[in-house]
Computed example of a mutant assay.
Amino acid sequence: MGDRAFQYEPLERFGEGLTTSRPWNRAALSGVERLNGRVAMIGFAAALIGEELTGRGIVGQLALMLRWLLG
């Protein structure tokens, strides 16, 4: 479990301040980017699975969801 991507990172660690010589903590931001990429891959896979199950593209899936939410 050496991967720290899913651990909470306090906001203060992302940026030291705009007046310092190194305003951004690149190690903390790389973890955030890695997590963002993983979530994007899961979302893409979910869209493909939804299209396969419903036979509709993303717009059709959104229309079905809106119809379901609005009753």
Results as ranks from 00 to 15, higher is better:
residue 13 R to T: 09
residue 27 A to V: 13
residue 31 G to E: 10
residue 16 E to L: 14
residue 51 E to W: 03
residue 46 A to F: 05
residue 51 E to D: 02
residue 4 R to L: 11
residue 53 L to R: 14
residue 36 N to F: 09
residue 56 R to W: 01
residue 33 E to N: 07
residue 51 E to T: 14
residue 61 Q to A: 01
residue 12 E to V: 08
residue 40 A to E: 11
residue 44 F to P: 00
residue 5 A to I: 07
residue 48 L to T: 02
residue 45 A to R: 05
residue 18 L to D: 12
residue 42 I to S: 01
residue 20 T to V: 15
residue 68 W to V: 09
residue 44 F to I: 07
residue 7 Q to F: 05
residue 55 G to P: 03
residue 25 N to W: 00
residue 32 V to N: 01
residue 2 G to I: 04
residue 41 M to L: 10
residue 10 P to G: 02
residue 8 Y to F: 13
residue 28 A to V: 06
residue 10 P to T: 01
residue 24 W to P: 03
residue 26 R to W: 04
residue 28 A to S: 11
residue 24 W to F: 15
residue 15 G to T: 14
residue 24 W to M: 14
residue 9 E to K: 10
residue 16 E to K: 14
residue 41 M to W: 02
residue 23 P to S: 11
residue 22 R to N: 15
residue 16 E to D: 15
residue 58 I to Y: 04
residue 11 L to D: 10
residue 43 G to S: 08
residue 29 L to Q: 06
residue 24 W to S: 07
residue 58 I to A: 11
residue 38 R to T: 05
residue 55 G to I: 01
residue 12 E to T: 07
residue 34 R to Y: 03
residue 67 R to P: 03
residue 43 G to A: 08
residue 64 L to M: 15
residue 3 D to K: 07
residue 11 L to Q: 05
residue 38 R to P: 00
residue 7 Q to T: 09
residue 22 R to F: 12
residue 62 L to V: 05
residue 28 A to H: 04
residue 1 M to G: 15
residue 20 T to S: 15
residue 56 R to K: 13
residue 69 L to D: 07
residue 4 R to E: 10
residue 49 I to F: 06
residue 4 R to G: 02
residue 46 A to Q: 11
residue 11 L to C: 04
residue 16 E to F: 11
residue 15 G to L: 05
residue 64 L to H: 05
residue 41 M to F: 00
residue 60 G to P: 02
residue 14 F to Q: 01
residue 23 P to Q: 08
residue 28 A to K: 06
residue 62 L to W: 03
residue 54 T to L: 07
